[in-house]
Amino acid sequence: MANIVDDEMIEYVGILAKLELSGKEKEQAKADMGKMLDYIDKLQELDTSGVEAMSHVFGVKNVFREDVVTNGDRREDILKNAPEEKNGMFMVPRTFL
């Protein structure tokens, strides 16, 4: 069955993905995503009742450690990559309009 991806759905996905698409990109995304969903729908052919979802192949459990600092103070190093910084802190645009 062909999946129809409409404007509303693309709008919604754009919000989730934090992406702003141009009109042309939106049309392309609708077509591409429809096609990909049609393809992924192939999975529905398989009966997976009673099958447990597998997230990790070896069933590795959570790995815990003591909360001890092992690295030194690298603030200056880290801030070198910040698009904007001020007084040793990351600078962000206005958060309330």
């Binding site: 759905m9 996905v13 993905a17 992406l19 995304a29 995503m33």
Partner: peptide
């Protein structure tokens, strides 16, 4: 990259 982020967000 956008294509995969969008598909991933959707699923």
């Amino acid at each position: 990259v956008k294509r995969r982020i969008m598909l991933g967000s959707f699923v």
